[in-house]
């Protein structure tokens, strides 16, 4: 018995304990998803024209790399351009709306109504105005993604603590002073938070428009692949979109942490 107790504890930790599971989790879950998908296709004996296995999809990516790459860049271009316009316009409109209670009350219902319109219904109108191609895709991305930015910036401005405002107004601060010193810095966490939502919406907008009215872009590529029953290529397009979406989201999340670290203070204190 005593001999067993005296055995020194194992010094090197086992392999399982040395892996940072939280860091590894996103990769493991992604791989698991693909494996499950592959197994499902094999188990149900799905034809590739209904549900291609991940191996078929990766095969399609390798086979059609040149058009996939070109169209991915096109979609990324229309999305980021539309998104950039949305950021500028959304920030400006948000500040404008948040400026006064009257403007807020007057414009808010209009904005809600506008946001309720399915943007795909606007694409034909944009085509009448601008023709098919890049412009309607950029504009659709813009229209769909600027709303969350506006709402968030306006909310940040509208929720200034009345006591802060009193302290400054008693010192003779003008509306402009309060906006510059308190309102705008205060709304920045809301603004950067909204970028994460807006960028993913921008992809929805540009791809919808490309699918209906364009000769370029992943949306167009997928719709023509579909008409040729090239289902692996459709899935390849979806996969590329997902990757672009994740990358852009990650950039926005990084930007948010960089610019408004003070708003995430619970993790930064001391």
């Amino acid at each position: 018995m005593s001999a067993v107790l005296e055995t020194p504890p194992v010094v090197t930790k086992p392999v399982m304990a040395r892996i940072n599971w939280v860091k590894a989790a996103p990769w493991l879950y992604t791989i698991a998803l693909f494996v499950a998908w592959e197994l499902l296709v094999i188990a149900l004996d799905m034809p590739p024209t209904v549900l291609p296995a991940p191996t078929d999809v990766f095969g399609a990516i390798a086979k059609y790399w040149s058009p996939i790459w070109k169209n991915s860049i096109q979609t990324l271009y229309t999305t980021t351009l539309g998104f950039a316009i949305a950021v500028v316009a959304g920030l400006a409109i948000g500040l404008f709306i948040g400026w006064s209670k009257t403007i807020y009350a007057g414009l808010y219902p209009l904005m809600i109504g506008f946001n309720a319109i399915p943007k795909v219904a606007l694409v034909p109108i944009l085509v009448i105005w601008f023709g098919i191609g890049t412009v309607p895709a950029v504009l659709t991305a813009f229209l769909i993604s600027f709303f969350p930015i506006v709402v968030n910036v306006a909310t940040g401005l509208a929720t200034i603590e009345p006591e802060t405002e009193d302290v400054l107004r008693a010192l003779g601060a003008k509306k402009m002073d309060i906006m510059l010193k308190v309102g705008i810095p205060r709304s920045m966490p809301y603004f950067f938070g909204s970028l994460k939502v807006a960028i993913t919406l921008a992809f929805v907008g540009s791809v919808v428009s490309e699918t209906v009215a364009s000769n370029y872009g992943l949306g167009n590529m997928m719709s023509s692949a579909q008409s040729q029953f090239n289902v692996p290529l459709v899935f390849a397009g979806l996969l590329m979109l997902a990757i672009e979406g994740i990358v852009m989201y990650a950039i926005m999340a990084w930007l948010e942490r960089r610019m408004t670290g003070w708003a995430h203070r619970s993790t930064m204190a001391q």
Partner: peptide, 14 residues
């Protein structure tokens, strides 16, 4: 010419 302080310190966190 007035300075004010409330129960809530209202310091700006940024």
């Amino acid at each position: 010419i007035v300075g004010m302080a409330f129960q809530n310190p209202t310091m700006l966190p940024w």
